[in-house]
Design a binder for these strands. Structure first.
Lengths: 234, 234
DNA sequence: CGCGGGGGCGAACGCTGTTCGTTCTCGGTT
DNA sequence: AACCGAGAACGAACAGCGTTCGCCCCCGCG
């Protein structure tokens, strides 16, 4: 073991420059690293600060608070959503589905980040980029402007709540919970409901728990798009 | 000011019996009182205990933890949802809309309680009661079983995320935020987006912020139901 | 009459987001 | 070249969170 030497006094004591110099971007990246590793509830100011080798108070010079940090993280993640090379109006339904799948994939890849999305309107450029593409596709399909505007809302909600649900299960799996057994339990519970009050749910127990998350999501988007189709002006 | 008298020693000092004797039901009711008054973030174990004139540790004899308390509260609230007297298959779309409106009304009346709903499958009798009614309506309309099962999911997500969003705005209003001015700000922001990247959103600024929450909700449900209609077997 | 068990609860633990006040650093101005 | 002030960095602290521990008391059963 080497013995401790006193610092040479005329050497400026300078901490290792290895760590990046604490910019808003560095905060966002550190936050996302923590998010991916431990989920949204693990993203605390202390944890993020630790990731950057500092204390929580230091973060407030670059970010107004935790809420702003989370919104910046969401915006960054939204940037990972890849859009089709160009809109193809004749394939509008299929392309919108592609965007939905892609958004769901990206959000789910970052645990439960979508909770932030449920908390308000997001106006960052990366989210708007996706919205611009989708709304263009809807308009080109002949869907009225007001319908297209509302539809953007609806699709966003479907994506967000689905991604959130999906992330809960992946978190459960990561925590060692047997999700298959859980759904088996749900099915058995439904199948044993009192016949006089819940005849249908009881009978449909198997149907209710059928299908994985992707299949259910795909279906819901398809239903919504079929509904939109009925608004097309001819 | 009346001076304090010492307690008469042979009188059993008995705290006012007015407060109910701490049952799970009493916890749930106290929790909902706090929820209605201060919103979900105000529902802390300490706050609920205080509402019952005791300390937080006392709650754990009746409830396994905060999560269970919240789920019990959600179940209780779900009991307030009133269903039509009887299903009328020929009016299935209108009746499902009525149920959605009613559910949205009830949930929104209890602030942001729906956040709990987003956190997992709820199997309490009150929630199942609504599900049984809706699924019966769908089946009677000729919608295939698997479609009906998935649709239940989709409608639930629409209701939950919409009620959550609506509660955020009522909370903002209660906090003195001018929501109209907020939306004006959003519209102006959209209208000033760079033309070359966001021509459509820029142009649709007015359309995007048009309509209140109820109108948007109504529309989304209508779209989803039209989509479901296309699955009816003849 | 005795006693066991469970509800009630004060205190504490280890967290959280945020603020305060101090120290440090560094670029621009005398 | 000397100085100075603005902003970044940050240690410490505050108020509050969910939950647990350990003790007291009281009720009901044997």
């Amino acid at each position: 073991m080497t013995s401790e030497m006193p610092a040479i006094p005329w050497h400026k004591t300078r901490k290792a420059d290895t760590r990046q110099p604490l910019t808003p971007d560095a905060l966002v990246e550190a936050g996302i690293r923590v998010l991916d590793r431990e989920g949204l509830e693990g993203v605390t100011m202390r944890r993020v600060a630790q990731e950057l080798g500092t204390g929580p108070a230091s973060l407030y010079a670059h970010v107004s608070g935790k809420d702003e940090l989370l919104e910046l993280m969401l915006e960054r993640v939204s940037g990972e959503i890849r859009l089709p090379a160009r809109p193809e109006p004749e394939r509008w339904k299929e392309q919108i589905k592609e965007v939905c799948r892609e958004a769901q994939r990206v959000y789910t890849a970052h645990r439960d980040i979508t909770v932030v999305s449920l908390g308000g309107i997001q106006l960052g450029p990366n989210k708007l980029r996706v919205a611009e593409f989708v709304v263009g596709l809807l308009l080109s399909a002949g869907i009225p402007r007001q319908v297209a505007a509302f539809a953007l809302d609806g699709l966003g909600q479907l994506i967000d709540s689905d991604a959130y649900e999906a992330s809960l299960y992946t978190t459960k799996i990561a925590a060692g919970v047997d999700v298959d057994a859980y759904f088996d339990g749900v099915r058995d519970y439904l199948a044993r409901l009192p016949e006089e009050r819940f005849p249908l749910l009881r009978d449909m127990a198997e149907t209710m728990v059928h299908g994985d998350g992707d299949e259910r999501f795909e279906f819901k988007v398809e239903v919504f798009l079929r509904g939109l189709e009925s608004y097309i002006e001819r």
